[in-house]
Simulated assay, not measured.
Amino acid sequence: MSTLTPPSPIDEQRARIRSTLADASRLLLCLDFDGTLAPIVEEPDEATPTTANENALATLTSDPAVSTAIISGRALTDVRGRVDGPKMYAGNHGLELARRGSVAVHPVANKRASQVERVCETLETALESVPNYRIENKRLTGTVHVRSVPDDARPFVRRQTHAVVDQVGGDALEVSTGKRIYEIGPSIPWGKGNAVALIAADMPPDTVPIYIGDDVTDESAFRTVESDGIGVRVGGDEPSAASCRIDSPEAVARLLEWLGSVGIDALERGEPELRSISTRSVTDGSLSTATRSS
């Protein structure tokens, strides 16, 4: 296993990105939502993408050489209601995948949803003495938000979360850590990277994938795209599987605008008739429920 290194600033990588796009005829652009298209806010229900990101994403989505997807830790119905335009969405860290007019749900996660619900209900009682905590039941997963919890109370929240998950879920559930959150989900080898891999497998072979995200849960997606494409981490210079970094959702908008002009121009689109055939092959083919494996 290779050692992770800090990703390079995006300005140092633009020539490489342009060269990678020049060797392709299509772009698959996958984006996280919170902290990427939308700034992180105290109240998760108030998160909205910036206007600049909405406009730049709409421009890219309308281009026939671009396929766009949102890959979020939010529930699928939640994230689909917050950003419009892309034809593909993955919710609950890839456990739900919407494409080609249908939704596939990981069957093991579906079976363990009742345990997630019991964990969330139990935690509401276990954490009732903690100020400003918030528990979000997303059916397939749950999130304990501690962004507004006093610093000295967060260790208690962490211990209680792990204790309740162990008590209710046993080996069926696990806890992972994100940016001021604790994620509760099925203990199965599945994440955002798996959803990206399924989407990418549906693309023509000369498609370059780009993934943009800001959290620990995005690392599996970075690993998925970096072999053939580009991973872009939003945030600091912590070691990451992504090769590039930018510092904020505002910088995401500037990158999307660059991709919508310089990046798209670099694509080798081929003859118009052939390009039309390639586009139809991506949007009209049949899709099996690829999330049947456990």
Rank of each mutant, 00 (worst) to 15 (best):
M1P: 06
S2T: 05
S2F: 06
P6Y: 15
P6K: 14
P7E: 14
P7R: 08
I10N: 10
I17P: 02
S25T: 02
L27M: 07
L28W: 01
C30I: 05
L31E: 07
L31G: 01
D34I: 08
L37C: 05
A38C: 01
P39I: 06
E42N: 12
E42A: 15
P44A: 06
D45L: 01
D45I: 04
A47P: 07
A52S: 15
N53A: 00
N55R: 14
N55T: 15
L60H: 04
S62G: 13
P64W: 12
A65S: 11
A65V: 05
A65Q: 04
A69W: 02
A69S: 12
I71G: 00
R74G: 14
A75M: 11
V79C: 05
P86M: 03
K87Y: 13
Y89H: 02
A90H: 00
G91V: 02
G91W: 03
L95Q: 09
E96H: 09
E96Y: 11
L97P: 01
G101P: 01
V103G: 03
V103N: 07
V105M: 03
Q115N: 07
Q115M: 10
E117P: 01
E117C: 01
R118W: 00
V119S: 00
C120H: 00
L123P: 05
T125W: 10
E128Y: 06
E128Q: 14
E128P: 04
N137S: 00
R139W: 05
T141N: 00
T141Q: 04
T143P: 02
H145N: 06
H145S: 09
V146K: 03
P155R: 07
F156N: 15
R158E: 15
R158G: 12
T161R: 11
V165L: 05
Q167L: 08
G170L: 10
A172T: 12
S176H: 10
T177C: 14
T177P: 08
R180T: 06
I181L: 06
G185F: 05
I188R: 13
I188M: 11
P189C: 10
W190P: 11
G191S: 14
K192H: 11
A200T: 05
T207S: 13
V208T: 14
Y211S: 10
D215F: 01
T217F: 00
E219Y: 08
E219H: 13
S220Y: 08
A221E: 06
T224H: 08
S227N: 07
G229S: 03
R233G: 03
G236P: 09
I246S: 14
I246D: 15
L256H: 09
L259I: 03
S261G: 12
S261V: 10
G270P: 05
E271D: 14
L274P: 09
R275N: 13
I277G: 11
R280S: 10
R280P: 05
S281H: 11
G285C: 03
L287Y: 12
T289I: 06
A290K: 12
A290G: 10
A290F: 06
